[in-house]
């Protein structure tokens, strides 16, 4: 056993150095050189200021914005310092109550809309930071957003189409709409009209 002390200490130190120091620094060096934007968080920069990330969702609750997935992160929705889901079981009464509340909020903001609500718009995401909603969830909100902004529904609808990512290879994953990018584009239209 004592004859194994030297190998264990030396090899542990050596492998820690290789996999725990050399490896991450080399990957960081090459990664940031080749893909500087992606390696640093895919940030959206306006006027030199980072205002969000294309990959991390934000909370929107005003009628004139598209709303994202409900977020169950601690203390506040879309808290990027506490990613996670609700972890509510399927028959937990608290889950049913939460879902009812979300439906209520959507209906109140858009009383004229009698369509069924797409399930992803009333269920909390896994990360609590989901940047996307389904195409159906975006379409459900088009009339409300157009109404609140005084824009034609067709224009808002086209904007949704423009911010839709199709399935990978036309088959895998789900088509999605990036909520933050879409809302920024809406504000850009408002900004242009204002000028």
């Amino acid at each position: 056993m004592t004859s194994q002390i030297r190998p264990v200490l030396v090899l542990f130190a050596f492998l820690t150095l290789m996999t725990g120091v050399v490896y991450p620094f080399v990957v960081t060096g090459i990664g940031t050189a080749l893909f500087p934007d992606a390696a640093r968080g895919s940030l959206i920069v306006r006027d030199g200021q980072p205002i969000g990330s294309r990959l991390i969702g934000r909370s929107f609750t005003e009628p004139k914005y598209f709303w994202g997935r409900p977020s169950a992160t601690a203390t506040a929705p879309y808290n990027a310092l506490a990613s996670g889901g609700s972890n509510q079981g399927p028959l937990n009464p608290a889950l049913e109550e939460a879902v009812r509340g979300r439906i209520e909020a959507l209906r109140t903001a858009d009383p004229g809309n009698g369509a069924l609500i797409p399930v992803d718009l009333i269920t909390a995401s896994a990360s609590g930071l989901d940047p996307h909603i389904s195409v159906a969830a975006a379409q459900y909100q088009v009339a409300r957003v157009a109404n609140a902004r005084g824009l034609p529904a067709t224009q808002v609808g086209e904007l949704v189409v423009g911010h839709t990512s199709e399935r990978w290879l036309g088959l895998f994953g789900e088509p999605t709409v990036n909520v933050l990018a879409l809302n920024l584009a809406l504000d850009d239209i408002a900004g242009r009209v204002g000028e």
Binding site: D120, I122, T123, S127, D130, H132
Partner: peptide, 26 residues
């Protein structure tokens, strides 16, 4: 439970449907 409260859980070309609690849209 989701069906009872009035959600659309059918999978289609525009939405995943199913049990989306705790799942990501993408």
């Amino acid at each position: 439970v989701f069906t009872q409260v009035g959600a659309d859980v059918a999978r289609s070309d525009t939405q995943p449907g199913g049990n989306m609690e705790g799942k990501e849209a993408r």
